[in-house]
Simulated assay, not measured.
Amino acid sequence: MHARTVAASAAALLGTAALLLPLSPVRAVDGGARPLVIAHRGASAYAPENTLAAVDRAAALGIDWVENDVQRTKDGELVVLHDDSLQRTTDVEEVFPGRAPWKVRDFTAAEIARLDAGSWFDPAYAGARVPTLEQFVERVGRHRQKLLLEIKNPQLYPGIEQQTLKVLGNEGWLDRRHVKHRLIVQSFSADSVRTVHELKPAVRTGFLGTPPVADLPAYAAFTDQINPSHGSLSRGYVTAVHAFDGAHGKPLEVLTWTVNDAAAARRVAGFGVDGIITNAPDVVRDAVGG
């Protein structure tokens, strides 16, 4: 939680001067020499996002980490979907034409299970379904992969943090092995990340965003990662984040998103990020050797 060196934080605040810092060593969450490569919503460049098919494709590519998004249905089921509406990635308009704006929270789990979540991406994936969180983590576990789980729109779903942790616990994802090596929970909501940390302190957490360097000590009290958009990153900012110890007493990590081409991957790897979240994990892996 405390800065290891004043110089590191100061350099990040000096703008142009930060460019003179020596290249940060490329670190990784699991202690490797290169940044982790995380399949964004599964291998979503090649299969419909957040479906079991996208998990399978990531596994086929040899990708260990998978990212997903969690929302809640009308009857309280957790499902894996990025948008708070079903409109973009399912055929909900055809199946339920009179129920615009087709918000996830207005449909039961059984209704959502009827929807085709694959045809919008490619006819070859017709019939793919919106998975429940239980189904998703079972598939990730079957492949012996690891999970970066995003709690999406927590302001729409009071108590979703506790419910998510309950599902993870029921599925065997809160034992020591999982929380130490195979699970990270993140959100754009600092309050949500803080809630997860308070409910289950052993779980590693990430905050999605680019907080000012001056605010990093406050974030470090309840999170292990600061996970910004790659367009907002600089080498100085990554160095500044690494100068603080996070909630588990280790240097704050940086996972950046969403990087889909080799040049951008090499650029952020040069900044010393710990992981790269990407729709095309094979492209990024080949670019950075992750």
Rank of each mutant, 00 (worst) to 15 (best):
P123Y: 12
F121P: 05
W173P: 01
Q163W: 09
K180P: 02
R204D: 00
R177H: 15
W120A: 10
I112P: 04
V130D: 05
V130M: 02
E134M: 04
P131W: 06
E111P: 00
K200L: 05
P201G: 04
P158E: 08
V196H: 10
T132H: 09
L156I: 04
Y125C: 02
L199G: 11
K152I: 03
E171R: 13
H197W: 09
I151H: 03
F207A: 03
I160R: 05
L183R: 14
D191A: 14
E150N: 08
V137Y: 06
R182A: 14
K152R: 13
E150D: 09
Q145C: 01
H178M: 12
V185Q: 05
P158W: 06
D175M: 06
V179H: 11
I112F: 11
Q163F: 06
R176I: 10
K152N: 07
D191C: 01
K152Q: 10
I112Q: 02
P154M: 03
Q186R: 14
H181P: 13
L115G: 04
L115D: 04
A128M: 09
Q145S: 02
S187M: 04
D191H: 13
K200T: 08
K146D: 07
T132R: 06
R129E: 10
I184R: 12
F107Q: 02
L115A: 11
G169T: 05
G209W: 03
G209E: 07
R176S: 14
L165A: 03
L147P: 00
A128W: 01
I160Q: 11
I184N: 03
A113N: 08
F107D: 00
L156D: 15
L148Q: 07
K180I: 06
H197P: 04
V203W: 06
E161H: 05
A126W: 07
W120F: 15
G172H: 08
H178F: 14
I112D: 02
T164D: 02
Q186Y: 04
N170T: 09
K152V: 06
V137P: 00
R177M: 10
P201I: 00
P154W: 05
P131M: 03
R176D: 15
G159V: 08
V203C: 07
A128P: 00
L168D: 01
I151F: 02
H197R: 14
R194T: 04
Y157G: 11
L115C: 10
T132P: 07
R204H: 12
E198G: 04
Q145W: 00
R114D: 09
P131Y: 10
W173H: 04
F107M: 04
Y157N: 12
D175T: 12
F188W: 06
N153D: 15
Q163I: 04
F107E: 00
R177P: 02
K146F: 11
F207R: 02
K166S: 14
F188E: 05
E138N: 01
L183N: 13
K146P: 00
D106M: 03
Y125H: 12
E198T: 11
L168K: 06
A126E: 09
Q135H: 11
V140I: 13
W120V: 07
P123T: 11
I151R: 01
G169K: 10
L168H: 11
L148A: 08
L208T: 14
R176K: 15
L147M: 07
Q155S: 14
L199H: 10
H178E: 10
I151T: 08
I112K: 04
W120L: 09
Q145H: 01
G172D: 02
D106K: 05
G118T: 10
D175S: 08
